[in-house]
Design a protein around this nucleic acid. Structure first.
Lengths: 325, 325
DNA sequence: ATAATGAATGTAAGCGGTTTCATAAAGGAG
DNA sequence: CTCCTTTATGAAACCGCTTACATTCATTAT
């Protein structure tokens, strides 16, 4: 099949060490030998095996920085079930397996001495990323995407998830589906919002959306507005579980039955989604995998595989519970 | 730092071979030894190094199938600069480096005997994918995404690219920007279309779109329609270069100056984009990388890293030429 | 002429696993 | 009580590559 160092060495009539030197352009090699080796390499169409190379280099133990804003960092170590805590577990497990040393820090405290950077969550600012980018070190954003920056990122696929969820509702015969969404400046909400629109349009239904504020405090007023301007919907899609649950409460206060009168669909699968009554149908975000995939991405970059920057979106999983028919 | 087989063996008081047997659940191991080893493993928090394992397994040379529709397959070998020809080069180069044997075939001819499958382009049908999925073998789509299927895919990021391109036009002071787009059932067009909408809305501009047919034959009529219903735009965004160039021709026929009167932005960076007059400003798709990234994805899957399915989007590159101010 | 220096190459020991083969102990059959 | 098979384990080779160290040969300084 494909050839290896030994084959090349034999053909060129030299030792494997010499071939290795030519490949890595390291140490002394005479012009003549170099030519012979290069000839043999191209003749055999030889390409070094990355895995072996990595192994031989003693599995280079890289140091990577995991950087986040203050709020995120605090929550990581104190709340075991919190979103980022799980993400971080995914990162550290991968890191251990692949011999990366992880170092946690806040944005302000970060030094530029690491081999790579994992930037966690939405608290990271544009400017900080741009500044960090100048260090030329590999960087990957986790749960954050910034259009136009062309920086590697790993996120949950809100678009795909929303389409899947909405189509499920449509299949159940629900038609009047409205979306309650958070600020669209947040890429996550925007993504889910777009998925909702796409699904509705695909099925010739009229989308209708209402925006709640960051904290979701205006939910009571928002539901009033919705009922007044739109009438009773068949279903409500909340772009995150917290908002969906809050909306559900408001509807129950107004004597609507969930899901008989109105179905509710969330997004996230937070802990309380399964404990609330009725339990919330939602799209599960794979937090642990978010971390491990991001770590793998950074790892690939660290390995020097000259890779094109990508946005990696993890598909979500639709979890049918009791808040939808 | 992190521990290895030897460490575990020493702690458990057995040989490395025994530990390996326990890990792989292979060969004879007594209950007692197994317990000891497992205890040592968890005590040391040991995780096997994937690279070493791969290497030791003789660098398992996998066989992968590259499957496409008839049209794509034909073009691959005959036209050196064609889209998929370049993509395939990216795949095969990666494959060689990582000891994957590639086999090309059409959908109809494919047997289910390969270790993994790379499905190329839009000719692949939904049903075929679903059928193939039942083989449980790793699969990755290249330049194709199907909402809701949750199957690994690698595509070009039309959304991000379009935003970047449109924002560039806006920065130049252009306001009346319309989009000519192909059928939105094609995920690629839809993606770029969504990006256009997002960019316009973000800047408080009114989006206006016109759809051309698959082949782009109706361009003359479409331009007439555009001029009649919208008036003269400042700029036109075509969701692919072919359409953009055709639109540019039509405008020139109608005595408009490009870019003085109207700027034209394409998407793809096909060969003729740089040779046409005026040369076309466009968003370059990285075809070669599309292939190599997809191959890497499949490779990861083949390595048995139990990975969550993802959609990987490659960022595009904005190429400023003469068709825009 | 001789020692010291540097260039060019080879030998062999890992990197962290897997696996073949050998060996030993424990049963079961005759 | 032997002989053979099964079970359990370890020693060592190997996967493809890198690299420290050893060796050889040609220069150059003394």
């Amino acid at each position: 099949m494909s050839s290896n160092l030994k084959d090349v060495a034999k053909l060129a009539g030299v030792s494997t060490a010499t071939v290795s030197r030519v490949i890595n352009n390291k140490g002394y090699i005479s012009k003549k030998t170099k030519r012979k080796v290069i000839k043999a390499i191209s003749e055999l169409n030889y390409l070094p095996a990355k895995t072996a190379r990595f192994l031989a280099k003693k599995g280079q133990t890289h140091n990577i920085a995991i950087i986040s804003g203050e709020r995120v960092l605090d929550s990581i170590f104190s709340h075991p079930d919190e979103f980022y805590t799980v993400v971080v577990k995914g990162i550290t497990d991968f890191a251990k397996k692949h011999r990366l040393n992880t170092h946690f820090m806040k944005m302000e405290e970060a030094e530029y001495i690491y081999d790579g950077y994992l930037l966690l969550g939405g608290e990271i600012t544009d400017n900080y990323i741009k500044e960090l980018k100048t260090t030329q070190k590999p960087i990957a954003l986790v749960d954050q995407y910034i259009p136009g920056l062309k920086i590697d990122c790993v996120v949950s696929d809100g678009y795909d998830g929303a389409i899947y969820g909405i189509e499920n509702l449509i299949q159940k015969g629900l038609r009047k589906i409205v979306a309650l969404h958070g600020p669209l400046s947040h890429f996550g909400f925007k993504d889910r919002y777009d998925g909702y629109i796409a699904a509705m349009e695909k099925h010739g239904l009229l989308p209708k959306t209402y925006e709640y504020d960051e904290i979701g405090n205006n939910m009571s007023a928002l539901i009033d507005l919705l009922l007044k301007t739109y009438g009773k919907p068949d279903a409500i899609f909340g772009t995150n579980d917290t908002a969906a649950i809050r909306a559900m409460e408001e509807l129950k206060n107004r004597k609507f039955k969930v899901p008989e009168d109105i179905s509710i669909l969330g997004f996230d699968d937070i802990v309380s989604a399964s404990t609330v009554t009725p339990s919330l149908t939602t799209l599960k975000i794979f937090k642990y995998e978010l971390g491990s995939v991001a770590a793998r991405r950074l790892f690939t970059l660290l390995m020097g595989e000259e890779e094109h920057p990508t946005k990696t979106s993890l598909f979500t999983h639709f979890i049918k519970r009791d808040s939808t028919i």
